[in-house]
Design a protein around this nucleic acid. Sequence first.
DNA 1: CACTTGACCTGTCCGC
DNA 2: TGCGGACAGGTCAAGT
Length: 292
Amino acid sequence: MPELPEVETINVGLRKLIVNKTIKSISTDWVKSLSYDAKYLKDNVLEQSINRVDRRGKLLIIRLGNKYRLLIHLKMTGQLVYKDQQTRFGAGHPNDSLINDLPDKSTRVIIQFSDNSFLYFNDQRKFGWIKIVNPDEFDNFSFLNTLGPEPLLDSFKASDFKRNILKRPNSEIKAVLLDQKIIAGIGNIYADESLWLAKIHPKSKVNRLSDQKIKDLFNAMQQILRLSITNGGSSDRNYVNAEGKKGNYLEFANVYKRDKQLCPRCKKANILKIRVASRGTHLCPNCQKVQK
DNA sequence: CACTTGACCTGTCCGC
DNA sequence: TGCGGACAGGTCAAGT
C-alpha cells in the first residue's frame, strides 16, 4: 500500500479538497470495504460535514461534524480520489495519472458531497477498509492504540528510535522496521531504501547493531521519508494521490525494484533481491554486510 | 511469549 | 496465445 509518504500526500490533498463539504450519500458494492447498513449511515454519516482530515501511520482519519470519524486503511492497492464535475484525469498528461474516468472497475465505495463532487475509494485487491466510529469507539480502536510513534515528529528522537527497535532485540532489523507497533508508517519500499542508505543488511539482528548504526538508520529513515513526501510518494503500480496523480519518488529510489542494476553508491556490485521477513527485499551485497 | 506462515483478493508477468 | 505459478506497497489470525 501506500506507506507513510503516500498516505501523507493523500492527507494533504484531502485537506484542500474536501474539508467543509457535506456528505450527501455513501455507497458500496463490496461489503468488506464498508460494513454498515443504511440506517447506520443515515443516522451517523449523511448530512454531516467534513471537519478535518488527519493521518496516523498509514491510516487516514476523517472527522465529521458530529464527531464520528471515518478511518480509512488503503492496504496494498487502495486509492482515495476526489473528483468534481469538471475533473478529467489524464487529459493531456497521460503519464501523470493511472486513472482515466471514475468510477472504474476497482471502485468499492463512493462518497457524494452536496455540491455534487465525489470521493472514490478504489481498491483492486479489496484488502482496504473504511470504518465509521463514534468518539468512544475511536478511543478504543486497537489498531491506533497499539501503533508505534510517528517517525517524523520533532519529538521523536534517535534515542526513542533506539529504545523502540530494541523491544525486538533478536529480530532481523527489516522485520522490526515493518512492525507498526514499533514505528508507524514504514513499509516495504522505505524499509529497503532506509537500510541501504544506512549501509545495514536487512537481516542484521537488532542487538548486533552499534549505536552509530542505529543513529545512521534513524537519520536515513527520516531523510528517505521526507524526500518521498517532497516527491509525492511512490507509484509502484496503483498508487495515486487525491487528485489522481502518480508520485515521483521511485525515480530517486536506490534499491527498490532495482535488482540486477549496479549499486549507485559503490558501483562494485549489482543490487540483489532476496526474501526477508517474507517480503521481497532489495540490497547491495557490497555496501550492506550482515551483522547477525 | 516471539516469530513465521497463511489468508484475505485481483491482476500482471514470466516461463514453458 | 494459453496456462500455471509466483509475486505485488499491509495486516491479522492461527500455528509452531
